[in-house]
């Protein structure tokens, strides 16, 4: 028994991992909590060219590793249940897990909020060598934009080309959005997902309302 204890002590964790969520009795407040989107959705128009929804309280994890290290790629795949996309600007979705290529050595993983710690722990359990796993769930939120005029709103907002010939379903880019930034992924023909920073989310929500006014904006809760 004492040997086992000894063993545990010598492999003191080289990184600090903490489950950051309280128990279910405490409700988290997403970055757009103050906007009371449920009421807006209830009272607002039901048809329009653009539909907005905040995918609130999702789990977001940044993963950094060496994409040329096959062992690390394998370990990440084992932890996530899906292989990391190594083609620039691509993403993969499998079940509840979606992974976005951010940079040659960086991926953004999105999972349901309550799964974040589990996935984070799994990554730590599988990975070895030089890597970084950071839970950033509190720092970001996800906007879903869809509808017939979604491309028109995006063209007012971002400088990247969103034409389907160069921005097919599944493509993901980090870029500017209005005077802030966003990680934009095309999740469907007329559906885009924006991962945005918490502190800018109110500005971006205002911007999207303004830019979609001429098309009519439907808010979904």
């Amino acid at each position: 028994m004492s040997d086992v204890k000894q063993e545990a002590a010598t492999v003191a964790p080289t990184v600090a991992v903490m489950d950051q969520l309280p128990d279910a009795s405490i409700q988290g407040q997403s970055p757009l909590f103050h906007a009371d989107l449920a009421t807006v959705a209830k009272n607002g128009p039901k048809t329009g060219g653009v539909t907005f929804k905040e995918e609130a309280l999702m789990g977001q994890i940044t993963l950094r590793l060496n994409a040329e290290n096959a062992e690390q790629l394998k370990a990440a795949e084992k932890a996530l249940g899906v292989a990391l996309p190594t083609q620039p600007l691509t993403s993969v979705v499998k079940g509840e897990v979606s992974v976005r290529w951010m940079s040659p050595d960086e991926w953004l993983i999105v999972v349901p909020g309550l799964k974040a710690f589990e996935v984070e722990s799994a990554l730590h359990a599988e990975l070895s060598g030089h890597y970084q796993v950071v839970n950033i769930s509190g720092g970001w939120t996800i906007f879903k934009l869809s509808g017939a005029n979604v491309v028109d709103v995006l063209k007012k907002s971002t400088i990247v080309d969103v034409h389907p010939s160069v921005f097919p379903v599944g493509k993901v880019v980090s870029t500017t959005f209005a005077k802030s930034s966003a990680i934009i992924r095309r999740s469907g023909e007329s559906e885009f997902e924006l991962v945005v920073r918490r502190s800018f989310s109110d500005y971006l929500w205002l911007w999207i309302q303004d830019a979609s006014r001429e098309f009519g904006l439907v808010v979904e809760a």
């Binding site: 620039p88 600007l89 940079s103 400088i159 990247v160 160069v166 500017t176």
Partner: peptide, 12 residues
């Protein structure tokens, strides 16, 4: 050269 496409100067 990392993203493999052209982007606007504002991103740089």
């Amino acid at each position: 050269p990392y993203c493999g496409e052209h982007r606007e100067e504002e991103e740089f």
